Computed example of a mutant assay.
Amino acid sequence: MTGTAGIADTVDVVVVGGGAMGSAAAWRLARRGVDVVLLEQFAAGHTNGASHGASRIFRLSYPDPVYIGLAQEAQRLWRDLEDDTGTRLLTITGGVDHGDHPYLHELADGLAAAGVPHQWLAPQEAAERWPGLRFTTPALFYPDSGRLHADRSVAALQAAAEASGATVRHSTPVTAIEVLGDDAVLVHTDSGSYRARRVVAAVNAWASKLLGGLAPLPPLRVTQEQPAHFAAREAEEGWPSFGHRFADGSADARTFFGGIYGLATPGEGIKVGFHGVGPEVDPDHRDFTPEPTQLAALREYTRRWLPGVDPDDFTPISCTYTTTPDENFVLDRHGPVVVATGFSGHGFKFVPAIGRVLADLALDGAHPDRRFAFAR
């Protein structure tokens, strides 16, 4: 690349952001024969964003048919990616939600309407099936849920993209995006520039910093989320993915920030965390240190509700959430700039399907559901 002389390399599409979403977009674009380069500001395998680690929940359990359909598409594409790369990424463990929040009944109604397998279990039946969890209310079980290996998924997406002709560059921060017209954009880095018809900016927590003025972003709240791995007393392979929701205004909802999620991370224990309640941060200036009040509440939750873990044997972990006011994603295009952000802590399961959506937006402008637009 010869940007130091003011001459830019020319490609069809530049994807900015080599996390899961950007890597998926590069894969789907390259599979369509597009000349694409993927630029990631950090080294491969970094832990600065939202795509690292060994475990993410996969589930079809949404009350919304649009999200259910997107998850079903993603499930098929995860298997395609496994076949393409010879990598195991998606492990089906089953999943269970419980608690006294009416949202569980909304989930059941949505799954029934979509024909997704699920069933209600009595508390005693659920406890016998999963002795590591305590149940006091009926539990909603989803046999098709499971976990994804995040680090392997990102590596597989990038390997598949490269195998289809994409160029992947790590440690290449983008310093600016310059819009030249409806079909022309310059993407500047420290080492030079790229000229392209489109740029796909999948930078999540960095969206406001990089795209301010280039696209009409909704308000984005970036938080440092602080789950932990707890040592398992019950064998890790027997655990489902799980969620526990407390009724609004209840004492448990106040104590445990509304509810928790969890799943096994083989070799590391049982991952348990709160959803989207961490302290707001600048993604470039994080300390990765657990907030003491929330960590204490997480440990107290495990004492009360997870007999299958040791609440005194744990390892804190850290990632970012980038959350929109309605927790719907941002998947839209403004001129030649395609934007992917605001995944609000529940986006990873959809990664390969979102890659397809971003490829559509870049190539023919086809928009997904309106809930993902800049203006909702």
Rank of each mutant, 00 (worst) to 15 (best):
A296W: 10
P218G: 02
R32S: 07
S164F: 00
S250H: 07
E106Y: 10
F242R: 05
L214P: 12
E106S: 14
T2H: 14
D12F: 01
R28W: 02
A205K: 00
H346G: 06
G259V: 00
L214S: 14
W206F: 06
T167E: 09
A74M: 05
A297H: 14
F348A: 05
T189M: 09
P143R: 01
V66K: 02
H334W: 14
R304K: 06
P290M: 10
V277R: 10
L358G: 07
H101K: 09
W239F: 11
L133T: 00
A8T: 11
G213T: 15
I270P: 03
A54V: 13
A25F: 13
P307T: 01
V37N: 03
V199H: 01
A74H: 03
G49S: 05
H275Q: 07
Y261D: 00
V37M: 11
A20F: 10
E106K: 13
F42V: 01
R195D: 04
A25L: 14
R31V: 02
L133W: 00
A20V: 15
D151C: 03
G342I: 03
E178A: 05
D252N: 05
D12S: 07
P325H: 08
V14K: 06
H52C: 10
A5N: 12
P283D: 10
G110N: 09
P292F: 07
I68D: 12
A114P: 08
S55I: 08
P266W: 06
F288C: 03
G94V: 03
A297D: 15
E125H: 02
L217Q: 14
Q294V: 04
T293I: 00
P368V: 03
F246N: 06
P283Q: 09
D83Y: 01
K209A: 15
A5V: 10
D9G: 08
A26P: 08
R371G: 06
P368C: 09
M1K: 02
G69I: 04
G6E: 15
R198L: 08
G19A: 01
G146F: 12
G94R: 08
G95N: 00
E236C: 09
P368D: 11
F372E: 10
V36H: 06
L111K: 03
T189P: 11
V203S: 00
G19R: 04
G347H: 12
I354Y: 00
E73T: 13
G3M: 08
H101A: 12
A251C: 06
Y301M: 10
S153A: 15
L104F: 08
D12W: 04
T137P: 01
L90D: 05
R76V: 12
T324C: 10
R286D: 09
V222F: 06
P352Q: 04
